[in-house]
Every structure is written in structure tokens, then in C-alpha cells.
């Protein structure tokens, strides 16, 4: 097989206060895959995500082991700016991600950090906003947008960097059902590898053919999302529950 977009090997990490969050995580994601990262609260999902673009690493104060590589490029200090271009992280609260005065300035922030200017920068900004259907809001201040719109702009801020893998932290949280579906349509339309951290299991099944379950700091399951969600023993053991009335077996198999 080709070089995986994301290659995590034996990743372990303990925070400076001694709390160990990850115990030897292995994860490979290949080009074009959409993978759901599932797991109960406190399983280490966020810690894993912060390793993917080098915000956390063995060198950042905590103790760690193992390696992370993005399309063959190891995540280490010397490559951080290229790593952060390749790995686009969309955080859960769009207010954390959108901090500039206008949508345009916010979407331009990432590519401008990569050194883009002028027309090329403009093209990236409008291209990314087009992909999430927010182009007409380009000159509005982000705090005047609805929550769903802000979430979409947050996705655009990362798309503008043309990442190789899009990492989404709880993309469907706090969205109304229509915004949730619109975001699903957008994510499906993107030609990019996706790793999606979520508690929204129907959303994972809808969008991601593959699911990885992280529990207690290690990977306990990695397979088709359908198989994971229908494995009652696995689900129960790792505090995963389907919402009331949702039965994956009643859906047509894809």
C-alpha cells in the first residue's frame, strides 16, 4: 500500500502532571478515507488529536514515546509548519477558532501564515468559503453569524490551507438537525481525508465507513463503522451507546 496520510505508531503520552493519557496507540489512515474516532469522555481522543499536528509531543513538557508521521513526514519540531499545513484541525468551539474581525481575515489567517499573499491568498479564501457555502458572508464579522455558520467558517479556515487530512473535533455538537445535515453534505463533498472525533454515532455511521474506538488511552477496535456499532459487547465495555430508537441493523447496508 502507499504511504499512509496518517501513520501513528506506538504513541504514548503522559501530561506534565503525571496523568497518562495515551498507552501505545497505532493508527493508519490512507488517502481518501473517512474515519470516525470514537470513545468515551476521557479516552484520550483530544490528546491524540493534539499530537497529530505537533501541539503536544514528548518534547512539549510531558513524557511520551512513539512516532507520528503525516504522508511520510515525521511530526517533529523542524517540520512543524509543514505538518500544520498538512493536518487541518477544526476545534469544537468555533469561537476558539475564529478570532479575527472578519470572516475573510479569519480564513486568510492560515494560508497567510504559509506565506501566501495577494491574488493567490484571495483565491484560497474564496475557494474555501465556496466549499462550505459561506462565500456571501466573507466580509461579515464572525460573531454576527449563527453557530452553524461559524462552524462552517471554522472548517473553511482549515480548508484554505489545503490540508491532506482534515481532523474534526465533535463536528456535529450543538448544531440543529438541519445544520448538522448541511455539514454532513459539505464533508461528503470534500475531496480530502477526514478523521472525525465524535460522540454522535449515527453521524459517524452516516459519514465514515471506518471507525476506530479509543478507550483508556489505547485503540480497542478498528473496523467498519457498521460492525463496531453492532458489536454490543464492545459497545457496552467502552461506554458507547446508540441514541434511543437508532438501530443500525434496520438501515440498508451500504
Amino acid at each position: 500500500m502507499s504511504t499512509p496520510v496518517l501513520d501513528v505508531q506506538g504513541l504514548a503520552y503522559a501530561y506534565p502532571d503525571g496523568h497518562q493519557a495515551l498507552f501505545g496507540v497505532d493508527l493508519h489512515v490512507h488517502r481518501g478515507e473517512r474515519v470516525a474516532l470514537l470513545g468515551p469522555n476521557g479516552a484520550g481522543k483530544t490528546t491524540l488529536v493534539l499530537h497529530l499536528n505537533g501541539i503536544l509531543s514528548a518534547g512539549s513538557g510531558g513524557h511520551g514515546a512513539g512516532t507520528v508521521a503525516v504522508s511520510g513526514l515525521p511530526v517533529e519540531k523542524a517540520n512543524l509548519s509543514e505538518i500544520r499545513r498538512r493536518v487541518g484541525v477544526v476545534f469544537q468551539d468555533p469561537d476558539d477558532q475564529l478570532f479575527m474581525g472578519t470572516v475573510r481575515a479569519d480564513v486568510a489567517f492560515g494560508p497567510a501564515n504559509l506565506g501566501l499573499r495577494g491574488e493567490e491568498l484571495d483565491r484560497r479564501v474564496m475557494g474555501a468559503l465556496d466549499q462550505v457555502g459561506m462565500a456571501e458572508y466573507v466580509d461579515r464579522p464572525p460573531h454576527h453569524l449563527s453557530f452553524g455558520q461559524r462552524r462552517r467558517v471554522a472548517v473553511a479556515t482549515v480548508l484554505a490551507m489545503e490540508p491532506e487530512i482534515l481532523v474534526l473535533d465533535e463536528p456535529s455538537s450543538n448544531l440543529d438537525p438541519a445544520s448538522r445535515r448541511e455539514l454532513a453534505d459539505i464533508l461528503r463533498s470534500l475531496d480530502v481525508t477526514v478523521l472525525m472525533v465524535t460522540h454522535d454515532l449515527p453521524y459517524a455511521l452516516e459519514l465514515c465507513p471506518r471507525a476506530v474506538v479509543l478507550s483508556g488511552g489505547s485503540v480497542v477496535a478498528d473496523g467498519s463503522t457498521y460492525d463496531v456499532l453492532t458489536d454490543d459487547v464492545l459497545m457496552k465495555e467502552h461506554r458507547l451507546e446508540l441514541p434511543f430508537g437508532f438501530d443500525p441493523t434496520a438501515l440498508p447496508r451500504r
Binding site: 493534539l50 499536528n53 501541539i55 509548519s81 500544520r84 499545513r85 493536518v87 487541518g88 484541525v89 476545534f91 468551539d93 469561537d95 476558539d96 477558532q97 478570532f99 486568510a108 489567517f109 492560515g110 497567510a112 501564515n113 504559509l114 479556515t157 482549515v158 490551507m161
Partner: peptide, 21 residues
């Protein structure tokens, strides 16, 4: 804490301490 999260999100988009212009 929000300030710290904003900073993380900025770092994730390649912020190095200077605003691009």
C-alpha cells in the same frame, strides 16, 4: 482557558508569533 484554546487553534494554523499581513 479560552485564550489558551484560541492560541492552540492559531498554532494549528501555522501562527508563529507575528500576524500575517
Amino acid at each position: 482557558e479560552r485564550g489558551e484554546r484560541v492560541h492552540l487553534a492559531m498554532l494549528s494554523r501555522g501562527y508563529t508569533g507575528k500576524m500575517p499581513r
